[in-house]
Design a protein around this nucleic acid. Structure first.
Lengths: 243, 243
DNA sequence: GAGTGGTCTAGACCACGTT
DNA sequence: ACGTGGTCTAGACCACTCA
């Protein structure tokens, strides 16, 4: 470690200044990817801070993916993620575009027997009763998404009688059926509109779309809705930021 | 707050147990979204832990989006974000797929005068000299992405003489030219392969692709690379998780 | 056994928002 | 003025890895 001075500024949190200084060294390549950085006592002495403060700085860097710590071994510089981020690393994402309204056009809501693929996602046996709900969602006046949802009939009796055209499905699930939701996972693909989707969305067949597969989990970590959507690519974008 | 007992298990970190207990209460609806949870001294007394331990538990929940803290005001339960995420809310994302290799096939690397669109992104005047680099990136043996990069010549003299076919461009930028990078922002669209992209990637024209527009920022917050890529949709997926 | 990071405590002072 | 969360310290003990 170099002996360059470290003179703390009073206004900014010490742990933040330490973090920024460490970050500078990482970027400058003082500690190349994969190498070990000095142990905590050495860094505490160098920055003249307590262990708690140092650990806060390092902890933040670990959370952000710059460092990795191993008890008993040491703290190591993560391999650079900007390029190798494919397969594995994280960032923040935002969907850019207008809001989807609670209002939707219900194409149909049928009770059907679950195919194998749907059943396995919902944790049911093949052939068990599920709702197959198909809706067109709007952003302002424009049809923006076509969504097929599958839900276990056992959890949501009489779903077809609910006000599905005017309320968010998730609100119906939580408020009418008292199924508390925890989280959702989506996987996004590029695709193009087939003739059916094109007709429902009022676009030309072949138009690029996002295909979104969503699993919504209740607090018991059970999949309570399996949703396959296509989103108009000319309306929505995914924006991601990472370091 | 209820008076249910909290009996810590020795093996698991205390802060983790406190966190899990708080999470249980959040899920049970003891503290509805938007409401304020008890202040730190009350929680410390209830769990019989020190403030540091409690703050670690709460800090984790804040980082994960369950709580929000405001100095001088208090700690509040985050409102649920599941449906309103369109246009605005956040989540974590991962790119699912194989890693892109540093190796690439350089289609060309030319010095050109910046068009208006490229110039404005890079913060240059129209007509200033920029590199236009086009590469095919690989995942294993398969061509997986076609990438056009624009970089200011002033920052990266002699770029075309660098080993662009064997190293990550970001590594060349940071190591050869000592331009430290801070972050990148990507915007993702669905598109389909035109005949040129199809030829370069060895796929059929019309195949769905992700179109990715990336701006890479130096630590001075200047855009130092503007990159337009298409990614094979049959190889890569975006996975997002949110609450 | 020596050195690493992981956890936990107790106490202090500060910045901020509300009353 | 008071209560909130934000920061920082000093010291202790523990679990793990590696020579």
């Amino acid at each position: 470690m170099s002996t360059l001075v470290f003179s703390p500024q009073p206004v900014i949190a010490l742990h933040h200044q330490v973090k920024q200084d460490l970050l500078l060294r990482l970027r400058a390549g003082s500690w190349p990817p994969g190498s070990e950085i000095p142990p905590e006592p050495a860094l505490c002495a160098h920055y003249r801070v307590s262990r708690g403060t140092l650990r806060r700085a390092i902890g933040d860097l670990v959370n952000e993916g710059y460092l990795e710590r191993f008890r008993g071994r040491g703290t190591f510089v993560s391999p650079p993620k900007l390029e190798s981020r494919f397969a594995g690393s994280f960032g923040r994402f935002t969907v850019v575009g207008p809001s989807l309204e609670p209002r939707s056009r219900v194409v149909f809501c049928r009770r059907v027997r679950a195919q194998e693929s749907v059943a396995s996602v919902l944790g049911l046996e093949r052939g068990e009763a599920v709702w197959h709900l198909e809706r067109v969602r709007f952003a302002g006046e424009r049809p923006a998404a076509l969504q097929a949802s599958y839900l276990p009939c056992a959890l949501f009796p009489e779903l077809s009688r609910q006000p599905l055209g005017t309320r968010f499905l998730l609100d119906v699930m939580t408020e009418v059926y008292a199924v508390p939701l925890l989280r959702a996972v989506e996987v996004v693909d590029p695709t193009k509109a087939d003739s059916y989707a094109a007709k429902q969305l009022g676009i030309r067949a072949g138009t690029p779309l996002f295909r979104v597969e969503r699993r919504t989990y209740s607090i018991e970590e059970r999949v309570v809705e399996y949703r396959l959507s296509v989103l108009r690519g000319d309306i929505f974008r995914y924006r991601t930021e990472f370091r």
